[in-house]
Amino acid sequence: MIVIDTSPHPAILPPLAGNAIRHFAPNWFAATMGTGVVALVLGHFGQVPALY
């Protein structure tokens, strides 16, 4: 299905960033949940700054 995108495309944004902004969805925040909890788990293995 093809939908015409009518939202404005500011020319000042490089294509990569423009694409990332256009397609961004909040489910990416799940990556910060997962990465955050892994940092906390690694923190329990020892208070070694390199780990967390």
């Binding site: 961004f24 909040p26 990465t35 940092a39």
Partner: peptide
């Protein structure tokens, strides 16, 4: 290091999501 990386990720996603709302409000 990983926790710091996660702060960076969260900040990046927050900026991207804020810009997504600003530029593509209808889609958001």
């Amino acid at each position: 290091m990983l926790w710091g990386l996660n702060i960076g990720l969260f900040a990046l996603f927050s900026v991207l999501y804020a810009l997504h709302w600003l530029l593509h409000g209808e889609q958001a």
